[in-house]
Design a binder for these strands. Structure first.
Lengths: 260, 260
DNA sequence: GAATACGATCTTGCATACAAGATGTAATGC
DNA sequence: GCATTACATCTTGTATGCAAGATCGTATTC
């Protein structure tokens, strides 16, 4: 028996990430970014932290998010945790197994495809319907890519993962549509979880480079080309997913037991 | 003083719909569709009913949804109502005013544009990335349009409104992407609320006809044309919104008091 | 008569208590 | 030794209670 037992309702350890009991592991949720300490009374803080942790790769798909653990971590009652979980559930980030617990989504191969297709539709559609774009917007985007490059150089994997995912949200918001930005935040979070699940080997440098190319096309006033590049970019992201490797747990187990 | 007083926290009566106190008016939420009585223990029933009521035009933007009222209507405690509200909040259908109450969204002109733009991006993007389409799928869509026509003929405005909105969800799901379908459910619900707010005069017959044309294009194996038609369709929907008429309440009040 | 202060009564915000189910563990039978 | 059963302990599900704020009506004050 390991030194620390897994919490009762726990599924199997998600990936290789878990080496500590949940309450300890999940402590990363608290002090991650000191910048928004002001909004400590923000009822959305729990959601935000979880999304951020997922985007940073700190939380793995299938990971259990116990109400009690979270209530201790955030020092609130289970009520507030539950309310945050309800919102995250509506956003497709977590799901509940009755009387067993809350779990970060573990999309099946099919769900993964649908999610990426949805992103493709939304992002390509967003780019082809652009009218004009201002230099200031280009500057904002370039700054984002610059910070991506800095994260790449510094070797901060969490920051890198976060920024690469957040580029797409940033793009939508910079182009002036917060509604699309909000939808993309959820879809990219799910994509990052999918990538973690299916062990994406997608190169971060390549992603960053492609982000730059998309901005180039926008700067040249060619949104159609930008849309095409985005399509290619998302195909690369998808192609990097090794769907066969993990498949979903049930399929995996089934195959294993059939001696395949 | 009127025979029935408005609930304390109530904003102004939303549109001309309110002629009864909320608890009575909202009774429409209970027995709307007898078909899914089986799932009475489904914790999502409250959300579903509210979405459906909004799509049917039974619930107006700005309408107050008191926790107590709903808990009486659905015969559950406030806890479950609150959880449903949290999910609806995450889906952008309701919003909360602290210690005053929950309200169906009343999008500003800007938010309305962003929502329709998001729909355009998503639906156009979905159509241009279609590969092949089966006759069975075309049949499903035709059946939907048929039921739209029946609702038009029968004069059932609620059913008409619901089906015209639901076409877009149906399209996404039929084309095989439930993720897009889920996103579109929320976006179309918001659009219907916007239409109610800005008094859309968009002709229902025209909408239904355009739905048919989109299916025609898909059947002919021309998704690009379908995408173009969808773009036009959504522009018609948007154009029908008489943004100036109500604008938002503040603007409206301002204009009224300036004697415009 | 107009402005203000105050309290009654509504609302949501949040914590807590208990019910009910799921799971791991140890005792029991053979 | 192995299967079965009973129980202990964890989990979420749901209702309820009380706190705190917002609004409205009324009395009070100038």
């Amino acid at each position: 028996m390991p030194a620390v037992a897994l919490a009762r309702g726990g599924r199997k350890p998600a990936g290789t990430l878990i080496a500590l009991p949940n309450p300890v592991r999940l402590r990363i949720l608290t002090g991650m970014q000191e910048q928004d300490k002001t909004a400590d009374r923000n009822p959305h803080i729990i959601e935000d932290r979880i999304i951020r942790a997922a985007l940073s790769g700190h939380i793995a798909p299938g990971e259990r998010l116990g109400e009690k653990d979270l209530s201790q971590i955030f020092n609130v009652s289970r009520t507030l945790v539950r309310e945050a979980m309800m919102r995250l559930q509506a956003r497709g980030i977590v799901e509940v197994s009755p009387r067993r617990g809350w779990f970060v989504i573990e999309p099946s191969v099919e769900e993964a495809r649908h999610t990426i297709d949805a992103r493709r539709a939304l992002e390509v559609g967003m780019l082809v319907t652009i009218h004009d774009i201002q230099p200031a917007q280009i500057r904002t985007l370039r700054e984002h890519v610059l910070s991506e490059q800095q994260a790449l150089a510094s070797g901060d994997r969490a920051q890198r993962s976060y920024l690469l995912g957040h580029f797409h949200v940033c793009l939508a918001e910079t182009l002036g549509n917060p509604v699309i930005g909000s939808l993309l935040q959820d879809l990219t979070t799910r994509t990052v979880l999918i990538a973690a699940l299916y062990q994406s080997t997608h190169d971060a440098h390549e992603s960053c480079c492609e982000h730059g190319q998309i901005i180039d096309a926008l700067e040249k006033g060619d949104p159609t080309e930008a849309a095409r590049l985005m399509d290619v970019h998302l195909r690369h992201v998808e192609k990097a997913l090794n769907y066969r490797h993990v498949a979903n747990r049930l399929e995996h187990l089934k195959a294993a037991l059939q001696g395949i």
